[in-house]
Amino acid sequence: MNFVDVVFYLFATITLLAGVGVVVARNPVHAALFLVLAFCSGAGIWMLLEAEFLAIALILVYVGAVMVLFLFVVMMLDVNLVQLREGFWRWFPFGALLAGLMVFEMIWVLGSSQTSELSKAVAHAPDYSNTKELGRLLYTHYVYPFELAAVILLVAMVAAIALTLRRRAGVKSQNISKQVKVKKADRLRIVSMKSEPKNQ
């Protein structure tokens, strides 16, 4: 076993343990943090496969942005654990069946002789830039699927904003450009008064 194998098994073990942690953690915040750990070690495995762009993008997008917002929401939720675990045994057979099916599929796909060739990293020259190659492919060969995906994401974004935007009557908000434009004369009225003698 060489060094790369040791690192791989280390990352793989951490990923699996963190995945188990996500499921069994009693506290939802702990579960979210375990998910962050799983993402980080997953990125480590991708880095071993010399997919540096994917690995860093995983950290940047999922760990750096998505999970932060996730944690943000989970921390503010008042989760009732008892209520959450009520139907556990009722749904357990169904869940176990799904999990078993997924394990079977994964073994089937990853264990076959055709895919075992794909799992090895292709060796590249030291000046090979993974990012540049990916960019070149995305913007030449796959430009239409890529643009389509971008448009779909944009539509989803607009839809999400439109769904949460509620126009209620009587909402008070500041109009900042109006505030900035205010002149002294709009707010302040100087009244000149004659001073009055004390003992009148």
Partner: peptide, 25 residues
């Protein structure tokens, strides 16, 4: 001297927020 240096920097600086969130919580 890595080729994806800028991406690496962005990824690392985006991790810093976790310490703050965890500390607060």
């Amino acid at each position: 001297n890595v080729n994806a240096g800028l991406l690496y920097i962005l990824a690392m600086t985006s991790l810093g927020v976790y310490g703050v969130i965890i500390a607060g919580w």
